[in-house]
Amino acid sequence: MRISVLVNEGPYTHEASDSAFHFVRAALARGHDIFRVFFYHDGVNNGTRLTTPPQDDRNVVNRWSKLAQESELDLVVCVAAAQRRGIVDEGEAKRNGKDATNLAPGFRISGLGQLIEAGIQSDRLVVFGD
């Protein structure tokens, strides 16, 4: 089955991103196809590579990046939500005259159309949020 996931909250404050991650990993293990994971609202904060949690804590961002690499996940950060919250890739930095980028490996920034497309293309869309 083809499944997509929407993550509405950032890492650490809320459990949503953890739940989404465990769900996605379990779905892959069950043989399902993850079409896309879309990050919206504060969920875009899951995509900053500058995250540095204490060593004895999980690294929510790296965990997503690693899973993306291993399982060829499409991790999409909403551009409008990302601009509001300062999540920037090279293209966005150039376009908006920013002096730095922070998008983590395995993530890409794109429009809300990607969320609607995920809804159209997937058999299921599961929402994680507050």
């Binding site: 509405n8 919206y40 409008a80 429009g111 809300l112 609607i116 809804g119």
Partner: peptide, 19 residues
């Protein structure tokens, strides 16, 4: 909270996709 506003933004995109 911002949920209502950002939800509305998705609604407009959904409509643009003729859903």
């Amino acid at each position: 909270t911002i949920y209502a506003l950002e939800s509305l933004e998705v609604v407009l995109i959904g409509a643009a996709f003729e859903q």
